[in-house]
Computed example of a mutant assay.
Amino acid sequence: MASSPRTTARMTPAQRRRQRSVRLTVASALIAVAAVLTVVAVGTQSVVWLNVAAIGAVVLGGVAARIVYAELVVARRAHQADRTAQAKAYRAITEQRVAEQQEFAGVMTERLASSVRTVRELESTLVLAERRVAESEQKASTAQRRANAAEGAVSELREALEARVAELAAKADEVRAHAEQYADEFAGTEEAALYAQQAETIVDLLAWDERTRGAVTTPAVRKHA
């Protein structure tokens, strides 16, 4: 009456409950039959019937006990099979979750490494930009100092040129004054004419010297600028 463990393991829970109820019903019926036989034998007051009822009750009780024991074994095996299947299912779910977690960890590690590389590249770019800015500031400072030095040199050259022009103008005025005085004193003489000619020559030379110095100073000022 008991089925094999493999067959029981392949049964659905509804089929197991149906077989369990049938077996328990049969065991209960056997116990009831043994009780009826015992009651009948006691009622007849016959030794033969009492012996038959006793033997029948023992046999039927043993069969019922065997059926209950078989049902208990089957139930335990079915429960064990269910626990095993549940453990396998949990194990499969755990392995799947572990695989998903490892995949997620790999993706996040790769993203983190990419972010770290990006940050390092940005830091390198920032350092290079700061270095270029510092070099540009240094070049601008150097150019500013050169411009200031050139401006100072231009100012000094301008002052020197103005002083030279003033000096030449004073000398020219002095020469003209002497020439006019000498011309007034020795008017009509050849010496006065010669001195006047020499004075004009000196004035022309001074003017030429002034133009020459101005022409020479202008390229120098442009070079400093």
Rank of each mutant, 00 (worst) to 15 (best):
Y69M: 01
S46C: 08
S21F: 03
V98P: 03
W49E: 00
A81D: 02
R145C: 11
H224I: 04
R117D: 10
Q80L: 11
V221P: 01
P5V: 03
K223T: 09
D184L: 01
Q101K: 15
G106V: 11
S21I: 12
R6K: 09
A172T: 09
A78M: 12
R23W: 00
R176Y: 06
I67M: 05
R176W: 02
A147R: 07
R16G: 02
A32V: 05
E100C: 09
A57L: 14
T25Q: 12
Q96Y: 07
A225C: 07
A129W: 05
L205R: 06
M11V: 03
A177W: 02
R211F: 13
T201Q: 14
T218D: 10
L168P: 04
V26P: 06
R131Y: 11
A215T: 11
E71Q: 02
A64D: 03
T38I: 12
V47F: 04
T12V: 09
V58L: 11
D184S: 04
E121S: 01
V216N: 14
M108S: 12
N148C: 03
D184K: 01
N148D: 05
T38G: 00
V68Q: 01
A143W: 08
A150D: 12
V154F: 06
L161T: 03
D204F: 02
V63T: 04
A113E: 15
